[in-house]
Each structure stands twice: as structure tokens, then as C-alpha cells.
Write a protein that binds this DNA or RNA. Structure first.
Lengths: 254, 254
DNA sequence: ATTAATGTTCCGGGTAGCGGAACGGAATCC
DNA sequence: GGATTCCGTTCCGCTACCCGGAACATTAAT
């Protein structure tokens, strides 16, 4: 999948790579000491020390009694990306409304680098999912996005990434995907039946700006026990389409 | 305020500083070319080029027809900080409920590095405010946090940062602040009357975990025209205290 | 008191980050 | 259509500065 390069000759600024290696270790551990970081990252203690001091000095990392944490300053950066388009902030509210009205999980997803990224989410209070990345072809929202692309772009996508199997229901055949996308285009919504996780069904619709630029997709999902056929194919699609329409209208008249 | 160091001898890893100088320029501009970045940052073109290639290779920066953007990958980092404590995610929902029930702006704020940081927000769809930093003493939520500290910690805070005047109503006298904090402690909520912005009033309460650890503060604010005395001192405080209580309870029984 | 583990500081060596300049391509202008 | 301008990209020599190892400081445990 990725062009294997002989170990140790990664291009560009290696110091920056070290910085992010550290930041990712901080992200995964949440509250970690210097020596522990040296173990995780394989860097020298003095290197870790110097980098952390720089990052805390910049305010991006917080130190509290010899443990280091990701600082809130990253919010300033990430939030800019998440509100790059006004549609995204409108979508945030719609996701919340969807969650409250259906009492299921609701998300807004955008595509980046051929992957589905969770931008907004309503659901269980513990895991946030925001920022997490998933294969486009395994999610209802991802398929809604793919269906909004033209065939050539989809073909390129498949060439680059393949169609990895996540569960035994995941669509892994390019032709089956093409057919699926065609029905999505026809009926205006996408359905996911345990293709990403056993026991989970979902429905999604694409979201467009008034200028018909694709923003992403709104989706509601939940356990198969609650998401029966009638609910999935009647109520949810129209509800989602309403919300997508409201986003469009809000953008037009703001 | 900050110890002035003779130009050019900033400690630590200078390459990392360059990286963040670039990222902050990307954040402020949203879609910017290489040459434009050299102007903004004062770095050489080749340096900018090499750094950007590294960052896009890492996936943290996105390039689309010769313009560079902050990538969603930063969400993975920042969201970890924002959900470090479960209380924060619970607060997110409470902020939304507050916004819907009052039809005013609602926020959840935490303290970091002696500053108030917006972690969650309900309000106008354009500006997000999330991640933005403000002086603690100029916000209702900030004062609620300060009131939760003991006198010594507050004194240290004042020593380090002073009490900058934001509007002509901002509390700038340490003794006046001490008195204000005392009344906040007594009545259990903080009020901000145009101390941060003319025409804006706010109310806030502290938020605690079941173990009585301070998480941050919930706040509702809006124009003075709508936030009359009775509303500010009767309805809002009890509403906010209810929500703060609900957070505590949710954490206790999850 | 001793040991161990961790954060901090120092310093010499060599890597790799830097900057300047040159190249190639695309758009603009006359 | 040739000239000009403005970019992004590449190359290369220099040296700044990043790195790693080791020594030192500090704390906690036994």
C-alpha cells in the first residue's frame, strides 16, 4: 500500500518527525513522564527532554508534576480546520438535534486523504470518536460521500486504497461497490448493514452547500435490534434529508 | 510580563519552533501558498517547502492545488486533551442543553496556564471560539474558577499575571477581586457585568467531580438588554447549578 | 546510609537543517 | 508569440544545532 522506503531515509525534516512522534505518544498515554516517553518513542532521554521543554515553552504541551500532557492550545489549530467551512458548524448543531430526536448515535463526517473523518458526533459520553479515521467504503456516511463522486474518481480511489474487509459483510468487490453507489444515488441515501461492525446499522445522506459543493455526510446509526427495515428505509432517510436541507438553507440565508 | 530574552537565543529545539510558526500561519490564513507563507513567517522559501512537505507527508497538513491547509489529523490530538476527563464530554452536552433552553450563548471553560480556555460552546454559527483564551478575571466563568481556588493561589495568580483592564468595568484592583471572589463563594455563582465586553453580561458556576475536583465552569451570557437583574440573579444561577449538579451525578453513576 | 530511579545539565561530534541560487513550468502582459 | 513575472521545486556547500552519552541533582524507597 505505501511505497516501502529503505529504513531511515524518510524525506524532509527529521526533527519535525520526532516532534510528532512525541506528540502522538503524549496523545496515546495522557499524562506521561520523560523516561516513559523515551521508552515509547525510542528517542534519547536528553532529546525527549529538550523537545518537551520546547513544546511546553510554546504552550502546546503542559507539564504538571513531572508528567506531560497535550495542551488545549491544539484546539486553536484543530478548530480552525473544523470550522473552515461554515457548513461544518451548522452541521454540528444538526448532529446534536439528530441525536436528541432519534436517541441514537449521530455523526457528521468529511473526507480527507481518502478516509472518512468524524468531525461531529452525538452519542455515548465516554469515547469521543472525533478526529478518528475510517475506510470510506465501510460506513454509511462514507458510501454517501463516494456516491457523490463521479465514477472515475471512485475508480481512482479503489485503485489507490483497495477495499479492505472490515467485517464479513463489507463490500470488497469494486463492481458491487459501483452498483451500491448507483442505488444510493437513485434513492438519495446510503445504508450500512453491519459492514463496519457486527450488530450495527446506519443510514446517511450527503450534505451540500447552496453552491452544490459536497461538504460531507450526516449519519445516524445504532444496533440492528432497534434499526428495523421500516425505520431505516422510511423515517431515517427523510429525517436526515430534512437536516441536510436545513444546512443548505441556513448557509444560503445567513 | 515575560522575561525578555535577548533576541535569537530562545531555548530548545529551534526547528520545532519553526514548525509551529508555520502551523500558526496556516491556522490564521486557511489556504495559503508557499511564497505567501515565506512572507508571513520570515523563513526561507526552501525551508518552508521542506517543512510543508514533511507535514503533509505526516498527514497533519493538507495540500490542494498549491495551497496548504491544517489537516483534520490535529483533531486526534486536540480531542484527546478535550476528553481527558470524562466530565468534559458530559459538559459538552450540558452546554448544548443550556444554549437551547435559554436561547443565549453557553460555554464550558477550563483553566490552563493561568488562562480561561473555551472547551465547549453553543452560540452563533459563524465564530467558534473553541480553544480561544481569555484572562480569567474578566469572565464570569473565569471568576467562578478563581473563586474555587484558595486565597494564596489567587494571590500568586495576580502576582504572575496582573489584572489587565479589558473594558472600563474590568476588576483591576486585587482587593476588589478578593472581595468579589468572596461574594461568589457565598452565593455560589459568578456574574460578569460588561467586564469583558461592553453590552455583555454573563453568569457562571463552577463544575466539580464527585471527588470535588474542580473541572471548570459553566456559563451563559448575552446582551444586557436581555439579561436583566432578575434573570441574572434568580433564574440563571439555579439553572446553571442544576446542570453542574447533573454533571456531577452523571460522573458518579456512569 | 545506600540504592535506585528520574529529571536536569553539560559538551564534543557530525548530521541534517538552512539558505542562496538556479531550473522549469505556468500564467500574464504587451 | 516572445518576454516577463511569479511560483514551486531542486540542488549543494556550509555550519548551526541537534543528538547522544555521561555526569550531576534530587527525590523516594528500603
Amino acid at each position: 500500500m505505501n511505497t516501502d522506503r529503505t529504513e531511515g531515509d524518510e524525506p524532509g525534516v527529521s526533527t519535525t518527525r520526532k516532534t510528532f512522534r512525541l506528540l502522538e505518544a503524549l496523545r496515546d498515554e495522557d499524562g506521561i513522564s520523560i523516561t516513559e516517553l523515551t521508552r515509547r518513542t525510542g528517542l534519547t532521554k536528553s532529546t525527549v527532554y529538550r523537545h518537551l521543554k520546547t513544546l511546553t515553552d510554546l504552550g502546546y504541551v503542559i507539564e504538571r508534576d513531572d508528567r506531560y500532557y497535550i495542551g488545549y492550545r491544539f484546539l486553536e489549530i484543530s478548530e480552525q480546520a473544523r470550522s473552515r467551512k461554515t457548513g461544518y458548524t451548522v452541521a454540528k448543531r444538526k448532529v446534536f438535534e439528530l441525536g436528541q430526536e432519534t436517541d441514537e448515535r449521530a455523526v457528521f463526517i468529511a473526507e480527507e486523504d481518502d478516509e472518512a473523518v468524524y468531525l461531529h458526533r452525538y452519542g455515548s459520553l465516554s469515547e469521543t470518536m472525533i478526529g478518528k479515521r475510517r475506510p470510506l467504503h465501510s460506513l454509511a456516511a462514507g458510501k454517501a460521500i463516494l456516491a457523490a463522486w463521479d465514477d472515475e474518481r471512485v475508480a481512482d480511489f479503489v485503485d489507490r486504497n483497495g477495499l479492505e474487509s472490515i467485517t464479513d459483510r463489507t463490500i470488497t468487490d469494486p463492481e458491487a461497490l459501483a452498483a451500491e453507489l448507483e442505488t444510493i444515488r437513485e434513492r438519495g441515501y446510503a445504508v450500512n448493514n453491519q459492514e463496519h461492525m457486527d450488530g450495527l446499522r446506519g443510514v446517511a445522506v450527503p450534505v451540500y452547500t447552496p453552491e452544490d459543493e459536497l461538504l460531507g455526510a450526516l449519519s445516524v446509526f445504532g444496533p440492528t435490534s432497534r434499526l428495523k427495515d421500516e425505520y431505516v428505509h422510511e423515517k431515517l432517510p427523510s429525517l436526515l434529508q430534512d437536516k441536510a436541507g436545513e444546512i443548505k438553507v441556513t448557509l444560503a440565508y445567513r
